[in-house]
Amino acid sequence: MNARLSTFLITSVCFVIAFLYVPIFMLIAYSFNYSKLVPVWGGFSVRWYEKLFFDSPEIWEAVVLSLKIATVNACFATILGTLAGLALVRFGHFRGRTLFTGMISAPLVMPEVITGLSLLLLFIWLQNSVGWPNERGFTTITIAHITFSMAYVAVIIQSRLAGMAQDLEEAAQDLGAKPLRVLIDITLPLLAPGMLAGWLLSFTLSLDDLVIASFVTGPGATTLPILIYSRVRLGLRPDINALATIIILVVAIGVLLAAWIMFRQQKQRELELNMSEET
């Protein structure tokens, strides 16, 4: 019974892993394909990587633009989202709190097409009535990304604050800290992990976004997802495979690094705990 169960389990795990990773391995394999035609194997080569690094300035432009947008977006979204989360959890029952809670999380469920379309309409209206933004591109994409990233950060901060006992803040007040001081000394340091998670999430969401960015971008600004999508629409291309492989590598290293750091912190904490029990 047990053995049969474990055979079944192993088989299902294999299937799941295959389902998740076979496409990615295909992509990696074909990035080393000599042939210009993607589906035809023409032998091993790194020529598409060479092309990518030495002969594709427009791709690098797109990478730089995407990273710039993602960074600015993550910073602003973290600040605004943290403020929103604080307002929702800590400032008691102000008038319209339920409405605000609902509205802050609306972008999470709103279809991207609609978010993109409505933002585009807003930008056009603003341009016609106040003359700003005079062209769509970096600024408009960043603003659009902030609007939905902020909602994710607010939700993360909200849950972290709800789990954080309020008596820590009260204790600080009791010891003579004015509300702003409490925020700086107690609340923000304790929220830091949540803020970091929010920053990283906003960064990834922004790097990943195709739909909203294509609505609000202008002729001069092409983000990486827009570039890849437009290239692939004209047919599968091996140099894009190479680019995708590099992205996968970077992401994998990032994830492993984060996991390793977390593992080490955990170890350290356990060690300290054991020490304190011994004494």
């Binding site: 008596d167 820590l168 009260e170 007040q173 800290a177 004015k178 107690i186």
Partner: peptide, 20 residues
């Protein structure tokens, strides 16, 4: 008078020690 201006201190049930 707000708590931060009172000549009074409190020990909380949870102790409320600052974990960081």
């Amino acid at each position: 008078v707000p708590p931060y201006e009172r000549p009074v201190n409190m020990m909380f049930q949870s102790y409320a020690l600052f974990p960081h």
